[in-house]
């Protein structure tokens, strides 16, 4: 039973959500976080150096 209990979420998000109103925009905090993370991930993917370039140059 302890094993089954441990499958319950540590931070269940079952309470009513919070929402951001900005003019016509009305978005849940959860969705907002997802969108911001997506944009941050995209920008980071463009800016962060990709590892292994030296190895690659050395190999050719």
């Amino acid at each position: 039973m302890a094993f089954l209990w441990s499958l319950a979420a540590f931070i269940p998000l079952d309470n009513y959500g919070h929402y951001i109103h900005w003019g016509v925009i009305n978005i849940s905090v959860a969705n907002f976080i997802v969108v911001v993370l997506m944009i941050m991930t995209f920008v980071a993917a463009l800016l962060l150096p990709f590892p292994g370039r030296n190895r690659r140059k050395g190999n050719q």
Partner: peptide, 17 residues
């Protein structure tokens, strides 16, 4: 904007924005 929302504070179908 409920179409992209989920019950509780979970992210929903944000791609329907």
């Amino acid at each position: 904007w409920g179409m992209m929302n989920e019950t509780g504070s979970y992210p929903g179908q944000a791609w329907l924005w």
